[in-house]
């Protein structure tokens, strides 16, 4: 049965149903309802809700809980995610799975609290220092937030790496009908690497990211990047909407993809051949879907709530085979379908 939930609350409930019983947070707008929901629900499932002293402490509590082998999560909004960068880098360097939620708001600095997609670079290129990647999932509906949370936990466990849900204030605050998975339906893998006490039955496990011998560190990083290649081959996700015959292909994710979809529908009503590629994974980037669209499209138009942070990735993915244009708003402004349609018409 479908229920009506805010995106933030749906993320929280879906995480619990994905077997995450350890949540560590710190208040920040516009992710507020997520932590509040966790504080209500976790005691009901004998889980842990802990309001940490900072985002830094919260991500390191996640690091500790994940080291112990349980599914753990934290959530924040843009300025808070900057603070989590340290812990995310350490988790990547220690091969620890976890889920981090960023309900993005305008930046830089304290920025604003309205919806934004200006943390794309941070999420996909530089969540923290060092050679590493994290999985980045970009839901565009409340239902997809629910579906991607359990997928994010499963994929993070499978590849032993952190995963981020890159949402925004619009998706977090809006309500849509959702169908939740059954409670207790999560499939929790055994984690033999975890630091949970060896009980005298094995050698000690060490969760660590320090390697003072450069040869050793290089080797470990290279092994990790081989794993990333497997992720790139197997884990790309994208939706292709009316792209088969499209002359103009929009590329947009998350909230801006909702606007782009409306613009595509308006364009089709006018008889214009317009489609949309919607990346669902931002890392790995869905190069396969983009190349399918690039094989016949005359123009790409990237639509974002940022100054165009995804544009370079689109160009690289299709090797600049077709011109890639950009339209975006930033600072918490949301583009309208009419604005996007005007951009499309200018290209035709």
């Amino acid at each position: 049965m479908k229920v009506l939930m805010k995106g933030n609350e749906a993320l929280a409930e879906a995480a619990i149903r994905a077997g995450c019983h350890h949540f560590f947070g710190y208040p920040i707008t516009p992710q507020t309802e997520l932590a509040a929901y966790m504080s209500k629900r976790m005691p009901q499932v004998n889980g842990t809700y802990l309001q940490a002293e900072s985002e830094i402490a919260a991500i390191n509590m996640v690091l500790g809980a994940s080291s112990a082998g349980v599914r753990a999560m934290t959530s924040s909004s843009s300025p808070g995610v900057s603070l989590k960068g340290e812990g995310i880098s350490y988790m990547a360097g220690s091969d620890l799975p976890a889920v981090i939620i960023n309900v993005q708001r305008g930046g830089p600095g304290l920025g604003g609290i309205q919806p934004s997609q200006a943390d794309y670079w941070q999420a996909t290129k530089a969540t923290g220092h060092g050679d590493f990647q994290i999985l980045v999932f970009a839901p565009s509906t409340v239902q997809e937030m629910v579906d991607l949370i359990s997928h994010a936990f499963d994929t993070a466990d499978k590849y032993r790496m952190p995963a981020m849900i890159l949402a925004d204030g619009m998706l977090g605050q809006m309500m849509e009908p959702v169908e939740l998975p059954e409670e207790g339906s999560a499939n929790l893998p055994e984690k033999e690497w975890a630091a949970k006490g060896h009980g005298g039955k094995r050698a000690h496990n060490i969760i660590n990211s320090l390697y003072l011998t450069p040869e050793k560190l290089e080797q470990l990083v290279k092994e990790r990047f081989e794993r990333y290649e497997t992720v790139k081959r197997n884990e790309q996700m994208a939706e292709e909407y009316l792209t088969e015959d499209a002359d103009v292909v929009l590329v947009a994710y998350g909230a801006s993809s909702r606007v782009a979809r409306s613009a595509v529908n308006k364009a089709r009503e006018k008889g214009l051949k317009v489609g949309l590629v919607r990346p669902i994974t931002l890392w790995p980037f869905p190069t396969d879907a983009l190349n399918r669209a690039a094989s016949h499209a005359k123009n790409f138009l990237v639509v974002e709530m940022s100054m165009g942070q995804m544009v370079d990735d689109v160009k690289l993915a299709i090797d600049c085979k077709v011109p890639v244009h950009f339209y975006g708003r930033t600072g918490g402004m949301i583009p309208t379908p009419a604005d996007v349609l005007a951009q499309i018409e200018a290209l035709l």
């Binding site: 619009m170 849509e176 909702r258 606007v259 409306s262 949301i334 309208t336 009419a338």
Partner: peptide
């Protein structure tokens, strides 16, 4: 399916 949920 609903496109942009922001009614302008």
């Amino acid at each position: 399916a609903i496109g942009s949920p922001l009614v302008t």
